[in-house]
Structure formats: C-alpha cells, structure tokens
Amino acid sequence: MESSEFHNALALLDWQIELGATEAICDAPVDRYALPGTLKPSKSAAAPATATPATMADPVAQARQMAEAAPDLAALQGALAGFEHCDLKRGARNLVFSDGIAGARVMIVGEAPGRDEDREGRPFVGRAGQLLDRMLAAIDMGRTDEAAPVYITNVLPWRPPQNRDPKPEEIAMMRPFLERHITLANPDVLVIMGNISAQALLGKRGITRLRGTWTECLGLPALPMFHPAYLLRQPAAKREAWADLLSLKAWLNDG
C-alpha cells in the first residue's frame, strides 16, 4: 500500500472511532438469539401491549370514587379540577363550580356554563343569570342575601362547545360529582332548572310537563322549573315561572 493510501485509511479509521464505531463487522452474521444465556422473545412479548376494555378506566366509576372521597366543597372542587376523563375540560377556559352561599336552604341546579360563565368561572352570570337574580329578588331571595340566600351550581362544570346540549356520557360522568355536591351543600330544597338538569337528577325530560310539580330527588324535596334562558326565548312562559316561584316561597315559609 502506498504511503498516501495508508494515511488516508488511518485518517478514516480515526474518524470512525471518534463517531463511536469501535466494533468490527465479522465475515459471517451472528445470531445473537442463539448465544448461550440469551432468550428468544416470544410472539406475545414482541407484540406491543394493548389495553383491553376490561382494563380501561371506567370514567363513571372513577368520578364516583373521587367524588365520594371529597370531605368538603373545596376538596370536591379540587377533585373536579383533577378529573381528566371529560373532554369538555380541554376546550373550556374555566371550571364553573358554584356561586351563592353554601349551606343555603335553597340549592339551584342549572344545566351547563355558557360563554359568560366560562369566562368568569361562575354559574348564571349572563343574561339568563341576570333574569334569575330578578326572579329571586321578586321573592326576597338572592345569592348573597344573608336573610334568604341561595346556592347555585350546574350539572356540568365546563362549557360544551358552541353551547350544545351535553351528551349522555358527559352527564353520566358528572352526575357523581353533582350528587356529592348536593350532599355537601346540604340544602333543604332543590330547584331543578331546565331539561338537562331534570334528565341528570330525575331521569326525565319534558320540562314543560315537569315544571311546577313537586317531587323528590336524593331524599330532598325538589321543584322543576323553566330555565331562565328558556324564559328569554319564550316570555309568555314567565307566568308559569312566577307561579313556581310563589310555590317555592310558600314551601319555605311553611318549612
């Protein structure tokens, strides 16, 4: 070999060593699985593990476990914030938990946050919320009224895209949190506002048929009513809503 070729070959070898190529290739291939002490991977080991339906997390069961473990409302709000199975959370700005005074005799359960509620992180703050405040004031009640307060929440804590109706699986996931919320708030009476709330808590839809008729929910007296958003679209229904408010006031006075 000429001197120049030798030095070129040596330079290439040094360059390969710097790159980490420090092992030579044998003349014949080596079956490393056949070497002593080496186990051949089985077909089951080589295939990537996939979750079966039996091993996948049950969102409703996990929601129930997390909700029941919450000793108070603050812990329940934290549990909701940590629940990762509801896709609504990923598209919402804020968790909408509650408003008003916890421990109030009346607990109002609405449907789901809208744009204004999502932005502020409180239920019933848009036009429907303003109407609700006027409705409550008409019977001498209010969110922060120390003499006759109310406590307010929704079936869903996150806003559905484009204010669409919640899906059945979304309601099912949130129901354990809602039930625990009602237990911890410990009201004397529930006001169930709107079809979605009636579906979640009573298992029924058709608020025009259900409204105004006292029923029982989770061991509490419950009064289904029109949602204020419905009253904004159907002002003629305010007559029935006023009758329901008077029925609520009479129940509280008698209780």
Results as ranks from 00 to 15, higher is better:
residue 20 G to D: 01
residue 21 A to S: 13
residue 21 A to Y: 05
residue 21 A to R: 10
residue 21 A to M: 07
residue 22 T to L: 06
residue 25 I to K: 08
residue 26 C to M: 15
residue 26 C to G: 15
residue 26 C to Y: 15
residue 27 D to Q: 09
residue 27 D to T: 12
residue 27 D to E: 10
residue 27 D to Y: 08
residue 28 A to G: 02
residue 32 R to W: 09
residue 32 R to K: 13
residue 33 Y to K: 07
residue 33 Y to Q: 08
residue 35 L to Q: 04
residue 35 L to G: 00
residue 36 P to G: 00
residue 36 P to V: 02
residue 38 T to M: 14
residue 40 K to V: 05
residue 40 K to Q: 05
residue 41 P to R: 03
residue 41 P to D: 01
residue 41 P to V: 07
residue 41 P to L: 03
residue 42 S to I: 08
residue 42 S to E: 02
residue 42 S to Y: 06
residue 43 K to H: 14
residue 43 K to P: 10
residue 44 S to H: 12
residue 44 S to I: 15
residue 45 A to M: 08
residue 45 A to P: 00
residue 45 A to V: 08
residue 45 A to N: 08
residue 46 A to V: 15
residue 46 A to E: 13
residue 46 A to T: 15
residue 46 A to K: 13
residue 47 A to Y: 09
residue 48 P to S: 12
residue 50 T to G: 12
residue 51 A to D: 14
residue 52 T to E: 15
residue 53 P to K: 06
residue 55 T to G: 04
residue 55 T to N: 09
residue 55 T to P: 07
residue 56 M to S: 09
residue 56 M to W: 09
residue 57 A to M: 07
residue 59 P to I: 02
residue 59 P to S: 02
residue 59 P to G: 04
residue 60 V to Q: 03
residue 60 V to L: 01
residue 60 V to N: 03
residue 61 A to V: 04
residue 63 A to Q: 01
residue 63 A to H: 01
residue 63 A to L: 00
residue 64 R to D: 11
residue 64 R to N: 09
residue 64 R to E: 10
residue 64 R to F: 05
residue 65 Q to P: 05
residue 66 M to N: 05
residue 67 A to Y: 00
residue 68 E to R: 12
residue 68 E to Y: 11
residue 68 E to N: 11
residue 69 A to Y: 01
residue 69 A to D: 05
residue 71 P to M: 00
residue 72 D to V: 05
residue 72 D to W: 04
residue 74 A to R: 03
residue 78 G to S: 12
residue 79 A to M: 11
residue 79 A to S: 12
residue 81 A to V: 12
residue 81 A to H: 14
residue 81 A to D: 13
residue 81 A to K: 13
residue 82 G to R: 05
residue 82 G to C: 04
residue 83 F to R: 03
residue 83 F to M: 00
residue 83 F to G: 00
residue 84 E to M: 13
residue 84 E to A: 14
residue 85 H to G: 04
residue 85 H to A: 10
residue 86 C to Y: 05
residue 86 C to L: 14
residue 87 D to H: 13
residue 88 L to C: 04
residue 88 L to K: 07
residue 89 K to S: 03
residue 91 G to E: 06
residue 91 G to Y: 05
residue 93 R to H: 07
residue 94 N to I: 10
residue 95 L to W: 08
residue 97 F to T: 11
residue 98 S to A: 15
residue 98 S to E: 13
residue 98 S to Y: 09
residue 100 G to H: 04
residue 101 I to Q: 12
residue 103 G to A: 11
residue 106 V to W: 01
residue 107 M to E: 10
residue 107 M to Q: 12
residue 107 M to W: 04
residue 108 I to Y: 00
residue 108 I to L: 09
residue 109 V to Y: 04
residue 109 V to K: 02
residue 109 V to E: 03
residue 109 V to P: 00
residue 110 G to C: 05
residue 111 E to L: 05
residue 111 E to F: 01
residue 113 P to W: 03
residue 114 G to S: 10
residue 115 R to K: 11
residue 115 R to I: 15
residue 115 R to F: 13
residue 115 R to E: 15
residue 117 E to Q: 03
residue 117 E to L: 02
residue 118 D to L: 11
residue 119 R to D: 15
residue 119 R to Q: 15
residue 120 E to V: 15
residue 121 G to E: 03
residue 122 R to L: 14
residue 122 R to H: 14
residue 123 P to Y: 08
residue 123 P to E: 07
residue 123 P to L: 06
residue 124 F to G: 02
residue 124 F to L: 10
residue 126 G to A: 06
